[in-house]
């Protein structure tokens, strides 16, 4: 399918995300006068500190490809996947996503805490764009896969994080999305469920496009054809998943060794 001259399903062109930390004025009065001055044109906007979580990220994903994203904490992985899922807007550049996607981001998996598991399946399906008939057809299968049992009719605020992840994953894969985006969601499930998820993802591989954010290099190596290594908000490496994970792990080992060497220098009384 990827040989056909089709447009890539995901295009990320020169994307950057800037977070603004507004300078706080000492009082509301100062804030108000500043605001008025700015309208009239007497004052310029306050200087603010900005932080670029991502800068000039470019890549394309073809239909059926599965892409892993690795990187240290704070490298911008979550920011990137949240932008792909249209939750936050990029500051510069553009993101084009072609096709219906389901995204599983964060621990509560996009559920309304007050609603029951069953109601949340309906809500998520409606957000995804399924019709009532389609939802009813999938309902039993989703509940069975998630192994939630009778808790399905309890509000999700009473669910454990493992249950939330199971239900979230089950919902996300059963809609047969063209694109699946997963952000670290499997970390909270137990081993048996993780194995079940990986099996399911292997099934979907090739037919659905997958974007996975993972800490485990081994998973990326198994599940993905290709990987991107984000480092401090820029793409450090983009290539076959094995190569990228090797490079990323090698880099981490160097850092780890550095840290270990540094630890030797610390005086004895500070050592644990």
């Amino acid at each position: 399918m990827s040989q056909l001259p089709v447009l890539p399903v995901i295009e990320v062109n020169g994307v950057g995300k800037e977070f603004v930390q507004h300078q706080q004025l000492p009082s509301l009065r100062a804030e108000a006068t500043q605001l008025i001055k700015r309208w009239v044109g007497l004052a310029k906007p306050l200087p603010h500190e900005t932080f670029w979580a991502l800068r000039d990220v470019n890549f394309r994903v073809q239909a059926g490809e599965s892409l892993g994203i690795v990187g240290a904490n704070g490298a911008g992985k979550s920011t990137l996947i949240r932008m792909l899922a249209n939750i936050i807007a990029p500051t510069t550049g553009e993101i084009i996503v072609r096709g219906r996607f389901s995204a599983l981001i964060g621990l509560s998996a996009g559920f309304d805490a007050m609603r029951t598991g069953r109601e949340n399946i309906y809500l998520n399906a409606a957000i995804f764009g399924l019709t009532r008939g389609e939802i009813e057809g999938l309902l039993d299968e989703i509940i069975a896969f998630a192994e939630i049992g009778e808790f399905i009719d309890q509000p999700v605020k009473y669910y454990s994080s493992g249950m939330l992840a199971r239900l979230g994953f089950s919902v996300a894969v059963h809609f047969l999305p063209e694109i699946i985006m997963l952000d670290e969601i499997l970390a909270v499930g137990d081993m048996a469920f993780q194995r079940k998820c990986y099996a399911r993802m292997q099934q979907l591989r090739g037919s659905s496009t997958m974007i996975l954010v993972m800490h485990s290099g081994a998973t990326i190596r198994d599940m993905c054809d290709r990987a991107i290594w984000l480092h401090k908000g820029t793409v450090a490496m983009d290539g076959p998943s094995g190569d990228v994970v090797d490079a990323y792990e090698a880099f981490n080992h160097v850092r780890h060794d550095d840290a270990a060497a540094h630890a030797l220098d610390t005086p004895d009384f500070l050592a644990p």
């Binding site: 800037e18 977070f19 603004v20 507004h22 605001l35 700015r38 309208w39 906007p45 603010h48 900005t50 932008m83 249209n86 807007a89 990029p90 500051t91 510069t92 550049g93 553009e94 993101i95 084009i96 996503v97 072609r98 096709g99 219906r100 996607f101 764009g129 063209e178």
Partner: peptide, 21 residues
């Protein structure tokens, strides 16, 4: 059925503009 979602941002996420609005 294919839907296209386009996200593009040319503005800094700053509150000032919205406040002026």
């Amino acid at each position: 059925m294919t839907t296209t979602v386009m996200v593009s941002g040319a503005q800094v996420a700053s509150g000032a503009r919205s406040r002026v609005f």
